Computed example of a mutant assay.
Amino acid sequence: MSSAAPTTAVPPDRLATVLGRRYRVAGTPVELGRGAWSVAYAFDAAPSDGATSGSALAEPGAGEPVRPLVARIGRHLDDFAKDAMAGGFWDQTLPVPAVLSVDEWAPGEYLAVSQRRSGVFLEELGGAGWNQVLDQVLTALDTLQRRDPATDLRRTPATAAGPGVALDVDAAAVGLGRSYPEYLLSVGDDPPAGRLAGWRDRLRHSPIGEHSLRTGIDRLRRGVAAVGGDIEVGWVHSDLINRNVLVDPGGGAPRLRAVFDWGCMFVGDRLYDLAWLEFWTPWTPGLASIDLRARAREHFARNGIQVSAFDERLRLCCLHIGLAHLAYNAFTGNVVNLRGSQDRLATYL
């Protein structure tokens, strides 16, 4: 299975023409970056409702205000469907950019347009910035956990969908319909139709082999049995440290600006996103001086949130993150990151 991002460069004029069917495009789209599953382009458009007529560009007039937007092209419609659903989560404490439209770009490829926000990425903050913004991040996660996933899945997103584009999120794919322990323990599965299909064989033939995977799954299984299955679950973003959270550093008082790219979201332990920050701390220098566990405990106590078996649950989350990234890095063939994930996983065994 190949990367889901387009394998060839997208001509900016072609993208502008396609975008012009819905938006009054100003200027030429500019590539922002490529991820594993999509490629993103920045463009500006004049405020308008619905599609513009025809396929010709209708540029804003002189002095007319424009709005910053981002277009993403990728092969996984389910990622864009999750983004569209998450756009309905917007709250003052959880700023999720809205997905305005999703259309077919080419056979098997899709074009999603969202609001574009500016700022610095969360992982780029120094220690002082992290110290100031961490409580905002924890509050955003509280807001996320208060949502009811079953209700969210039944709502129709306020996103314009092109012909043949269904923005339905598969409940089973996000962990509903089975218990959270079952979800955790499925981390070693390699279904033939999965996004990372074939990863176990690639891991088996990689320089590190399967020993860490087998050891980690055994430790995870014993930990799940010890903690038990009575864990309250809710939405988990599961990709916060990957250029998916923007912070406005304005005036020395950082403010959470946007949380986006919800393609990895699932229903799980409220501690999972906290564990995500902890697991990736060695790659996030600004977190080095922050005691994440102490800060989280203080936050929960201050807000009357009861969290049982805190350390044990956090460890299970970190084990799962490490194991999942053995799978991901084996699939992508990135040996450096594979070894890094193995080493970090070892600290939780």
Score class of each variant (00 low, 15 high):
residue 142 D to M: 10
residue 128 A to I: 12
residue 135 D to A: 14
residue 141 L to T: 04
residue 149 P to A: 04
residue 137 V to P: 02
residue 140 A to V: 07
residue 152 D to S: 09
residue 128 A to W: 08
residue 141 L to H: 07
residue 129 G to I: 08
residue 136 Q to G: 10
residue 136 Q to R: 08
residue 128 A to C: 09
residue 146 R to A: 09
residue 145 Q to M: 13
residue 137 V to N: 01
residue 126 G to V: 07
residue 129 G to W: 01
residue 151 T to L: 12
residue 139 T to I: 11
residue 127 G to E: 11
residue 145 Q to A: 15
residue 140 A to P: 05
residue 124 E to H: 12
residue 129 G to Q: 06
residue 126 G to A: 10
residue 147 R to G: 05
residue 142 D to W: 09
residue 141 L to V: 07
residue 137 V to Q: 06
residue 147 R to I: 04
residue 143 T to F: 05
residue 138 L to K: 05
residue 131 N to E: 15
residue 151 T to V: 14
residue 151 T to I: 11
residue 136 Q to Y: 07
residue 150 A to E: 15
residue 138 L to P: 04
residue 152 D to V: 08
residue 140 A to H: 03
residue 137 V to R: 00
residue 148 D to M: 09
residue 148 D to A: 12
residue 125 L to E: 01
residue 133 V to A: 05
residue 139 T to H: 12
residue 132 Q to T: 13
residue 150 A to N: 11
residue 133 V to P: 00
residue 125 L to K: 03
residue 150 A to Y: 09
residue 132 Q to N: 11
residue 146 R to V: 02
residue 136 Q to V: 09
residue 127 G to Y: 01
residue 141 L to A: 04
residue 123 E to W: 00
residue 152 D to G: 02
residue 139 T to P: 06
residue 132 Q to G: 05
residue 131 N to G: 15
residue 148 D to Y: 06
residue 141 L to D: 01
residue 129 G to A: 09
residue 130 W to G: 02
residue 132 Q to P: 02
residue 126 G to E: 11
residue 136 Q to I: 08
residue 148 D to N: 13
residue 135 D to M: 09
residue 137 V to S: 04
residue 150 A to H: 14
residue 132 Q to S: 15
residue 148 D to Q: 12
residue 142 D to A: 12
residue 125 L to S: 03
residue 143 T to C: 14
residue 138 L to C: 09
residue 136 Q to P: 05
residue 147 R to S: 10
residue 135 D to V: 10
residue 132 Q to H: 12
residue 132 Q to D: 14
residue 143 T to N: 12
residue 145 Q to L: 11
residue 123 E to V: 03
residue 126 G to N: 13
residue 150 A to L: 13
residue 142 D to Y: 04
residue 126 G to I: 06
residue 149 P to H: 03
residue 127 G to T: 15
residue 152 D to E: 13
residue 129 G to P: 03
residue 140 A to S: 13
residue 131 N to F: 06
residue 142 D to L: 11
residue 135 D to L: 11
residue 127 G to I: 04
residue 140 A to T: 09
residue 147 R to F: 04
residue 132 Q to R: 14
residue 143 T to A: 15
residue 148 D to I: 10
residue 143 T to R: 15
residue 144 L to I: 09
residue 144 L to A: 05
residue 137 V to G: 01
residue 133 V to F: 01
residue 146 R to I: 00
residue 150 A to W: 10
residue 123 E to L: 07
residue 125 L to G: 01
residue 127 G to P: 02
residue 149 P to I: 02
residue 133 V to I: 15
residue 148 D to P: 01
residue 145 Q to Y: 14
residue 139 T to A: 15
residue 141 L to P: 01
residue 141 L to Q: 10
residue 152 D to R: 06
residue 139 T to L: 14
residue 128 A to Q: 14
residue 126 G to S: 08
residue 132 Q to A: 15
residue 138 L to H: 09
residue 152 D to T: 06
residue 133 V to K: 00
residue 152 D to W: 02
residue 147 R to C: 05
residue 138 L to N: 04
residue 148 D to S: 12
residue 151 T to C: 07
residue 140 A to Y: 04
residue 145 Q to I: 04
residue 141 L to N: 02
residue 142 D to N: 11
residue 125 L to D: 01
residue 138 L to T: 06
residue 149 P to Q: 02
residue 134 L to T: 02
residue 137 V to W: 03
residue 146 R to Q: 13
residue 149 P to W: 00
residue 152 D to M: 08
residue 145 Q to E: 11
residue 133 V to H: 00
